[in-house]
């Protein structure tokens, strides 16, 4: 635990008081923590991701249902690989599970997105990275139900906020998931928490250098890339405290962000 003071107004108190989390999580690697990435697939041959992707499945329309089957189609868009690269860099031993719903073909985007989330919940992956969302109102209710199911199953869903001035689902569901928007911060542990705002967490999301299909690397900007930063931090915290519930994880993030803020304030005061 750092010796930071100045978070007396934090209604949760210090992280140590409530969850017995000391600073050791910062040096963990996410070992044994399963992370589902619902996205455009992952380039499993990328040097940074080799051996880390435990399973890759793709959505396929089967009559009126959506089924998932193993795939080696990789990532045609690059987005999923970029998210996986960010997680892997911070939580290098986390187990990644690719659920490809974008570019799967023959499926409505919303339909495959929902099915992918349901699949991840059924598999009880510990953390679910949703750097995607939908603005279509017809998905509001089914997504809400799925998020409640995830919460009850102990799956921690982390969603990227819409980059556009328009609410997207599920990132606006404040109770049952963790929503993230981008900041210009570069240190993954220096995330922020804006209690009371619809999108609560902020994390690095501007010019983030990460893996890209074909063994490449790219610098990317978007809320999509802030989301995996928080996913990776949660993987580290869960390694030290595997039994934390989604609610406790969110509270821990809140308390840690308050520490970050106090630390920044302290540093600013010291420099005057």
């Amino acid at each position: 635990m750092s010796s930071v003071t100045g978070y007396e107004s934090n209604p949760f108190g210090s992280v140590t008081t409530y969850f017995q989390i000391d600073d050791s999580w910062r040096s963990r690697t996410g070992r044994g923590i399963s992370v589902a990435i619902i996205d455009s697939g992952i380039d499993v041959d990328h040097p940074e991701l080799a051996g880390k992707v435990k399973e890759s499945v793709i959505a396929r329309a089967d009559s009126k249902r959506v089924v998932f089957e193993p795939t080696d189609t990789g990532d045609s868009a690059g987005h999923g690989t970029a998210c996986a690269g960010i997680i892997s860099r911070i939580a290098s031993d986390a187990e990644l599970y690719s659920i490809k719903v974008l570019g799967a073909g023959g499926l409505g985007d919303g339909q495959s997105f929902l099915a992918g989330l349901e699949y991840a919940i059924k598999k009880r992956y510990r953390i679910i990275n949703l750097s995607l969302g939908t603005t279509k109102p017809q998905f509001f209710s089914p997504l809400h139900d799925l998020l409640d199911r995830a919460y009850q199953a102990g799956c921690i869903v982390v969603a990227a906020a819409n980059n556009l001035p328009q609410p997207s689902f599920p990132s606006v569901f404040s109770s049952s998931l963790i929503s993230v928007s981008k900041s210009v911060e570069t240190d993954p542990f220096h995330f922020g928490f804006k209690y009371g705002e619809i999108i609560e967490l902020t994390a690095p999301g501007v010019n983030v250098r990460t893996a890209w299909p074909g063994g490449a690397y790219k610098s990317l900007t978007g809320n999509s890339f802030a989301c995996p930063h928080i996913v990776a931090v949660i993987a580290l915290i869960l390694e030290t405290n595997p039994a934390l519930t989604p609610f406790q994880v969110k509270s821990a993030l809140y308390a840690l962000a308050a520490e970050n803020e106090a630390e920044a304030r302290h540093a600013e005061e010291g420099s005057r």
């Binding site: 868009a77 570019g103 799967a104 603005t135 556009l164």
Partner: peptide
């Protein structure tokens, strides 16, 4: 083609994106 590259992703996900390189 569907889902291909940056434009394909932006179209299918509805999310904007900046790629520096």
């Amino acid at each position: 083609p569907a889902g291909k590259g940056i434009a394909g992703f932006v179209f299918s996900s509805g999310q904007p994106m900046v790629v520096a390189d």
